Simulated scan of single mutants.
Amino acid sequence: MKARVTVTLKNGVLDPQGKAIEGALGGLGFDSIAAVRQGKVFDVELAHTDAGAAKADLEQMCEKLLANTVIENFAIEIV
């Protein structure tokens, strides 16, 4: 079973890397950029056959390692 975990900064948390990307895109002539927030994506293959068990394990993985839940949100998609 495959899953995709997307981790993003919570609203209100400063994102200097996103600001740097935003500035670089503006420097490349992309003037329509209003804001950029960066994040990370994890593609995970699991041996589970039960989607519920897989999602429960992925939530624990996010809470323990993949995301800093103080400043980041995560979303899990079973694909």
Rank of each mutant, 00 (worst) to 15 (best):
T49C: 03
A75F: 12
K40W: 04
K2D: 13
G26R: 13
H48A: 14
K10P: 04
G23P: 01
I21T: 14
A53L: 15
N68Q: 09
A67H: 08
S32I: 10
M61I: 07
G29R: 12
V41K: 05
I78E: 05
A51K: 10
D50Y: 08
M61R: 05
F42M: 00
A20T: 14
V41Q: 03
N68A: 10
I33Q: 09
F42H: 00
I33R: 10
A51W: 01
A34K: 11
A54C: 12
V41S: 02
C62N: 00
C62F: 11
S32N: 13
N73A: 04
D57P: 06
K64I: 11
N68R: 06
G52A: 06
F74T: 03
A20C: 13
A34P: 03
G26K: 14
E63Y: 04
G23S: 09
L46Y: 03
A20F: 08
T6M: 07
A20I: 06
T8W: 04
V41R: 06
A47N: 15
D43Y: 05
L65K: 08
K55N: 07
I76T: 04
N11Y: 12
L46S: 08
V5G: 00
A3R: 00
L25D: 03
H48Y: 09
E72L: 05
R37P: 00
A47F: 08
N68I: 09
M61V: 08
A24M: 13
N11A: 14
K19Y: 03
A53M: 14
R37N: 05
T8L: 10
V36N: 01
Q38H: 07
Q60T: 15
T69S: 11
R37C: 00
V79L: 15
G12S: 09
K55R: 11
E77C: 01
L66H: 05
F74G: 01
V79T: 11
D43C: 01
D43M: 08
